[in-house]
Design a protein around this nucleic acid. Sequence first.
DNA 1: TACGAGATATTGTTGAACAATATTGACATT
DNA 2: AATGTCAATATTGTTCAACAATATCTCGTA
Lengths: 220, 220
Amino acid sequence: MTEDADGMSLADRLARRIRALLISGELTPGQRLSEAAFSERFDVSRNSLREAFRLLTKDGLLRHEANRGVFVAVPTMASIIDIYRVRRMLECGALRQAWGQHPAIRVMRETADQGRVTRDRQDWAGVGSANMAFHAAVVDLADSARLNEFYERISAELRLCFGLLNDPENLHAPFVEMNETIVARLEAGRPHDAAAEMETYLNLAERTMLKALERACEPA
Amino acid sequence: MTEDADGMSLADRLARRIRALLISGELTPGQRLSEAAFSERFDVSRNSLREAFRLLTKDGLLRHEANRGVFVAVPTMASIIDIYRVRRMLECGALRQAWGQHPAIRVMRETADQGRVTRDRQDWAGVGSANMAFHAAVVDLADSARLNEFYERISAELRLCFGLLNDPENLHAPFVEMNETIVARLEAGRPHDAAAEMETYLNLAERTMLKALERACEPA
DNA sequence: TACGAGATATTGTTGAACAATATTGACATT
DNA sequence: AATGTCAATATTGTTCAACAATATCTCGTA
């Protein structure tokens, strides 16, 4: 899963490690990331750490306040709405123009199946991973390196939102069936229907996320 | 045009200055950017400069080779094809789902008119600027901060490509009419037609760019 | 409690240092 | 002349220590 770690500069490797901490929920939204503490923790210089912070800030995972330091980004309604707007544009667009024999369709099929298997096993983390991989494959249909990279960034931000919520079952499980429908439409040579289905999916997912965020913000 | 320069960190300001040099063509594709030379030139420390380089690398404007330094990215056929794939997805998508009363439509109208005025004046740089602003307004129809930011990055990369070519007239002038058509379709409440027109536009622009790049690479 | 003033800690930026790697150039070999 | 070798040189990668600027905290006083 994790790719080649060598050849990349220290800051890149650092950014990757911190990103992992972020999406694993080990670092909670709003938390301040002290330069001193983290350079100590990772045994790197403050300068190198600052380069890594800068990258993650550009990715939207950290927020930078002048003279106050960097903080883990806190998901808001606005950011969720924005993220789903992006997803509708990218994923529905990719589906609509998908070539019938594109290799990514096989990846979609595999990850959709994987989603069902893990769900039946009640392995919710597995369902989440399969789901993310499914949608990355959808974007890959567009055959654009820049789009893929952009989606990766959006995807990381979304995972940050997931971390805030603690209900992986309701967050991912309901979507297994829809993924299967979408890939089936595509396999049947009906990309437009697949896109329509995806739009339904994303609207539902967005509502679910917003509702979950609402609950998370105002705990009884 | 240029926004508030204070409040931002040194690296951000540096990145902006260097970006300006890049899109103005003062730095030519493939050129190596020495850390020593640039930290001298801008009178900043190497550390700060490296942070700026990192940001621009993430934007795709610079390329980083391990232990060899950073270089101005060189546009290739592949990158142009990729960029236009992104543009088709973003701009056509934004048009298709555009709300009829969106304020960005007025910006589109204004920049389209501005394009005609500057063209009649044979102010090709002006035509280029108006054109870029027009398409930024198109993306703005989608009402997504992340999409806008992403498009800005793509846009900067594209300007880098323009710099390589030296034929602003043929590169921008033919598109004045098409922009007017597109915004007219939108004003007439026919977003789908506008999107179709945009697709035609982008296909034509892509071909023009590829042809121009070909000529630039193999000078007689 | 509210308010300032000074003490403290943190970030912003710099400059120098050194290791690791890449480039150059002189020299020898064919 | 072309090519390969190896030391000399330059550049990047990373660290460290320092200091200015700004934010946060503490505490004494009204």
